[in-house]
Nucleic acid binder design. Structure first.
Length: 274
DNA sequence: CAATAGCCCTGGTGGC
DNA sequence: TGCCACCAGGGCTATT
């Protein structure tokens, strides 16, 4: 599943190909993925427009157009956004295709079809609730140790749930949340407000490190994730706990355990994390 | 505010 | 071998 580092890799890939390319035709194979506006308006707002800057906010991709609109894409679990040249085989799970004047195509593909797309005009940002309420993200100027300390000390929920809540940190999901708690040596069940200042400082560093390492390795491909050219990531080789239930801890040799927190699986080492 | 359950969805997996 | 229940989980809503 694409988390923040994966979405950033996709953004960088698209940034190299899309700007100044003009949308000549749109094929909507699965209209219900479009959340706003209705299908006809979605199409009308994009036709003939050219891509400009490709940005990212949390796990949302924001593709600016010269018409002033922004195409917003959230990949959820199995979404992929790939740039393909003319003549390349079509992804069997292609759902929405943006054919470009130069002959290339921007393909939105999604196996489980949980992804969401929007086209926003200026002032419509509130249409995407998750964007409007999103907290600062790692490696950004707004994400400071002071910010994390303040939010954590006031939190009465489990640290794992805290990390997954986008309103606190606009960031990642299950894989990197588990990894970063391992790196910081903190058990996922711990209550945010119970963390000591040294633990918070460690967690702060590890949040940034987990994101940075994920980006450096081109993302994590466990099954579905592909970058904007269809390639796989390499970070799956460096995971310490996620998906390693029953396997040996790479740090202490003990057994990696798994539990459920807030309806999500949490992987951890009971020896290295406290 | 926090926790939880349910919903959306399809393909891979494990059990029989 | 075939079938089916179950699971993966991000974001949202409704409920306690």
């Amino acid at each position: 599943m694409p988390e923040m580092p994966e979405v950033e890799i996709i953004r960088r890939g698209l940034e190299k190909r899309l700007p100044r390319q003009k949308i000549a035709a749109i094929e909507i194979l699965l209209g219900r993925l479009i959340q706003w506006p209705d299908k006809a308006t979605f199409r009308a707002r994009l036709m003939g427009a050219s891509f400009e800057k490709i940005r990212r906010r949390g796990k949302y991709l924001l593709l600016a157009l010269d018409s002033g609109c922004t195409l917003v894409v959230h990949l959820r679990m199995t979404g992929r956004l790939c740039y393909t040249e003319a003549g390349q085989t079509r992804d069997p799970y292609a759902r929405i295709l943006f054919h470009l004047e130069g002959g290339g195509t921007l393909v939105y593909a999604d196996t489980r079809t949980l992804g969401t797309l929007y086209v926003l005009r200026k002032g419509e940002e509130g249409r995407v609730a998750g964007l409007a309420s999103m907290g600062p993200e790692p490696l950004s100027a707004a994400f400071t140790l002071e910010y994390l300390s303040k939010k954590l000390q006031a939190s009465r929920c489990k640290i794992k749930s805290f990390l997954l809540n986008q309103k606190y940190i606009g960031c990642w999901a299950n894989i990197y949340a588990d990894e970063c708690l391992f790196l910081a040596g903190i058990l996922p069940e711990r209550i945010g407000g119970s963390l000591t200042p040294p633990e918070i400082a460690r967690l702060y560093d590890c949040i940034n490190r987990a994101v940075g390492d994920g980006i450096r390795d081109g993302g994590t491909t466990l099954r579905d994730y592909r970058d904007s050219s269809g390639g796989k990531g390499r970070h799956q080789k460096h995971l310490f706990v996620y998906g390693r239930t029953g396997k040996t801890c790479r740090q202490c040799g003990g057994e990696i355990l798994r539990t459920k927190i807030g309806g999500r699986s949490a992987h951890y080492c009971p020896v290295c994390q406290r």
